[in-house]
Design a protein around this nucleic acid. Structure first.
Lengths: 217, 217
DNA sequence: AAATATTTTTAGTCTTATCTAAAATGTTAA
DNA sequence: TTAACATTTTAGATAAGACTAAAAATATTT
């Protein structure tokens, strides 16, 4: 139906729309996908013809509802495979991204539905992100960024903005995990670093780390 | 490392070398891969440059030892994924080929080794074919084609030459399965059809069916 | 051994997805 | 409000992998 390249563009646009409230530009996509703006333009034209995006020259893009459906299918596959890799094959959460990037393109609705059933219908992937169901329905948990918490506020680490290997390794090293309860002990005005308290320890995280942690209050 | 197209050619050549005792021609590959001879020639040149095949114009090809290693890796992946699909995800043996064709190209040694361990190191795939180990070692069972059995001889259905959906469906319909004991009751000289006796029933199979059944005596 | 048939290769084209360099458009700040 | 700067698009190239049609090599008949 769609090529891997097309699916990758669609998925990236979906993720960027969430992060940038539908202001998705050619350059933004190029940066995210580590490609050149001219390549992005080419692809946007193709996707527009296939009615997967609304695209007007120089005006950025939005996914059509058809495009969103495709995005959710790819994301569903990605997250179910990640869950499989971590829960069944015992990979660490920072090892699975690359494999899932490939597995998400395997063409077979039945396969992914069987996999989902085999895994007992998990609701979240190993990085805390919700797994869309067969119909593309996705459970959105209201979270706020750790940067926006005030001193004294408590919450639970719900999901990560950045799921790169290096960030995941950082969290592991600092003994922070999904579902951990945290409390903001202090905020350093000079560099916005945040002093946190968890069940087991205290630590200070930088602004850059904080903005990648989404907290459920 | 290698493209999907390259891996597919390598795999096909490997299979053809087994079937035709290293007499693998351009046309044969084209037929097997449902492509044109000219495309095959193009690819053989590329594979030769990469030292995966020995190729001299108009002389057919043989895999180099490097090529054989690649072939065995792809086959290993294919068969382990097939086993997973049938044993864990409960697909029927005639449903898994297309999915395995895609999964065999997922790039990750670790993934396939973990999968193998998860599956408890199966030795044969759902079609009776042996699964190469991590080092490419493959267990070859001595079998002979049902066509070569004499009246009165007994044996066990060990593996299939053709694992196409239609042949697998045929076997299911006729209530024939891997590991079934069979005995040749009669051979019809006119059309080489064979009258078989199994534990549970009698049946007649055509020459075409017989040549796709490999029997362990 | 020549004629014919078959197989294989070459030459040139197409599609997809990428790139660079240059041109066009949009944005910002003097 | 226009000059400078940034972003985006176009034009033209490239590479992989496929194709068709024609040419070349090999095999088979007569």
């Amino acid at each position: 139906m769609f090529s891997q390249a097309e699916e990758n563009y669609i998925k990236s646009i979906y993720v960027l729309e969430l992060e940038f409230q539908n202001n998705v530009s050619t350059n933004l996509i190029a940066k995210k996908m580590q490609t050149k703006p001219s390549s992005v333009t080419d692809m946007l034209k193709k996707l527009a013809v296939k009615d997967l995006v609304d695209y007007k020259k120089y005006q950025g893009v939005q996914l059509t509802s058809k495009g969103k459906k495709v995005a959710l299918k790819v994301i569903r596959k990605h997250r179910l495979w990640e869950y499989f890799l971590v829960k069944e094959l015992k990979f660490k959460w920072d090892e699975v991204h690359e494999m899932a990037e490939q597995l998400e393109h395997i063409k077979s609705e039945t396969l992914i539905d069987r996999l989902e059933s085999f895994l007992k219908y998990p609701k979240f992937d190993p990085h805390g992100d919700p797994i869309p169901d067969k119909d593309g329905k996705i459970m959105i948990t209201k979270t706020i960024n750790l940067l926006n918490l005030k001193v004294g506020q408590k919450g639970v680490i719900d999901n990560l903005k950045d799921s790169s290997d290096t960030f995941l390794k950082y969290l592991t090293k600092k003994n922070l995990a999904l579902r951990d309860k945290i409390k903001v002990v202090d905020i350093e005005p000079f560099d916005n670093s945040i002093h946190l308290e968890t069940k087991t320890h205290h630590l200070v995280v930088s602004k850059k780390v904080a903005e990648n942690l989404n907290i459920k209050i």
